[in-house]
Design a protein around this nucleic acid. Sequence first.
DNA 1: GCCAACGTTGGC
DNA 2: GCCAACGTTGGC
Length: 156
Amino acid sequence: MARWLVKTEPEECGIDDFARDPETPIPWDGVRNYQARNFLLEMAVGDEVFIYHSSCKHIGVAGIVKVARAAYPDPAQFDPGSPYHDVKSSEEKPRWKAVDMIFQRKLNSLIPLDELKGTAGLEDLALVKRGSRLSVMPVSDAHWQIILQQEKNSLR
DNA sequence: GCCAACGTTGGC
DNA sequence: GCCAACGTTGGC
């Protein structure tokens, strides 16, 4: 099983939106970057995913969701009314993908970005690298465990 | 294929 | 709101 991290603006779709209806998968759409899309394509049902809140008051890792449906053509790319519409994409040759994700749990407390940056062992995580704009990224087992350990540490 | 211009991301 | 960093576009 692989593990991932995705960025989102909580105003748009944060961990609380998953928690509100924990039995219902939510489409993860609107990814319009090739590197991020390629990671979406690698996701398998059951993979665990950190939800990271960006561009907001409390920036950091907020919770965990699971992949509920593997990659399929993102419907938004065909919708002229959508901000994610892509005129260069077609039903025959869809360019962009979506996956569905479902709630797993909220972290006991949000792990802020500056804590992630200050933690030994996370230097290689794309998230903490300067200028990184990648919105979907793999998380190694080691990185995953370090971040969960931070959650435990914050309880003390 | 190069690269300047442009639009977007995202922390601050 | 600012702006640095980045990805994409399009002329050549």
